[in-house]
Design a protein around this nucleic acid. Structure first.
Lengths: 237, 237
DNA sequence: GTGGGATTAATTGTCTGACATTTATGTAGG
DNA sequence: CCTACATAAATGTCAGACAATTAATCCCAC
């Protein structure tokens, strides 16, 4: 970050260079969501390269969901409205890759997850609505089924916490947290819960819903810490 | 995660489909970092498509920094070790796009940033080392220069908080937070600080370093809340 | 035998031109 | 008015060629 080279954009492939130019046009606002790029033929002429090279550049941008393409008479490449869903999917994918490919240990991952989530609970206590409580209670009910597989239990846990984060009413926060939690899910799926562990988690979930209903953020923070410790104990058995 | 469609991979372009197949091979562990993919000719034959189509698929993967390519006799496409730097760059880019292209207001962005950061300060208090304090003090010294432009002040502020997050000693956390903060930076750069605002921020920074040195996480949380309120006041003047 | 330069082979990067497919639009006929 | 067909524009795919890069190999002079 500190060594921000001013002009290091040589040595690159043409397709990468062209992709970068278009990318800058989008970032700078010269191209805005919905705009149609020139056709591949026009782009190839404008940049002095073949159509194949232009196509490779466009595929790079498409892979980052910066553009989408449509065939047919009114088709072409269009600048994408970077939806929260797109960004979420990308971040979650990024997080999953990073964690699985770098053998991040579950202690580190859990610590990060609970630390991030902890930061949201005061906002959640302030802005929560009844449907958030309903969702969380529904997940708790599901978690009480002793027949539930570890994986399903974990999925329900994720849904529970997602609702908690959504209660903060801040889309940027929901998006960041959801991506982080989903990235960690593969690791969490490797946990095996004894029934005693599950009971402890469920009790904490119930206490959290109560605290959320009463809008007591400080209590939620304490409960989050308990939950983190409980999860780490489960992981280290 | 719940609606994991089993076979929705029709209707797509060949290049996208092939990219997805290779991507799954990487995610599943069939291909690990450092492995060399078959040559473009071999891939085109194996998948029954032309080399141009294979190349478009590879460019998609390269755009996600899942692979890198090298020319020459021992060249080819190699599975990337997904470094924290790569993941960080991607997440930061994602965050920037999301925030700028969706006109997220600065209140929402600030709220999210400080909420996330707040979750880290207890860990930071626990794991901080002297060089973190040194870095933060150095940034404070820079911030005291009244000649500093608003943009430079903001950059120093980012560096200060980055050091704070790094002090938590958790790479996953550092990576998530740094990306979030950098994504918000374009918005923060639009703030104009009066000298009074700057003095207030600097005082809080100094108090934070003291609290961090004394390892008092609770005090750090309170200071973060003050800092958030101060920043929001600056934004809404 | 050894060092160094030329050769060679493998691979990605780029270009060209063609054809297939998709999709909106215009047009003629009922 | 509505349908069916032709048309045009754009992306998607293909085949083949050549350029550029790089490591390994060969060969020859010393």
């Amino acid at each position: 970050m500190s060594d921000n080279l001013p002009k290091p954009e040589k040595q690159k492939d043409l397709s990468a260079a062209i992709a970068e130019r278009i990318r800058q046009d989008i970032l700078s606002g010269a191209l805005v969501a919905g705009d149609r790029l020139p056709s591949e033929s026009e782009l190839s002429e404008a940049h002095g390269v073949s159509r194949a090279t232009v196509r490779e550049a466009l595929k790079r941008l498409a892979a980052q969901s910066l553009i989408r393409t449509k065939r047919g008479a009114t088709g072409g490449a269009f600048v994408n409205q970077q939806s929260f869903e797109d960004a979420y999917a990308q971040m979650a994918s990024s997080a999953t890759l990073l964690i699985t490919l770098n053998n991040v240990d579950i202690t580190t991952a859990c610590e990060a997850r609970f630390a991030l989530e902890r930061g949201c609970v005061r906002l959640a206590a302030k802005h929560r609505r009844d449907h958030h409580l309903d969702k969380m209670r529904a997940e708790i009910a599901r978690q009480k089924d002793p027949e539930l597989s570890d994986e399903a239990f974990c999925a329900s846990d994720v849904a529970f916490h997602r609702a908690l984060v959504d209660a903060a009413g801040n889309p940027v926060l929901s998006w960041q947290l959801a991506a982080a939690v989903e990235g960690i899910e593969p690791l969490m799926n490797m946990l095996t819960y004894r029934q005693r562990d599950r009971d402890a988690v469920i009790s904490l979930h119930e206490a959290m819903v109560e605290a959320l209903e009463a809008r007591v953020g400080a209590r939620l923070e304490i409960l989050m810490d308990y939950l983190r410790d409980q999860t780490l104990r489960t992981a280290l058995d």
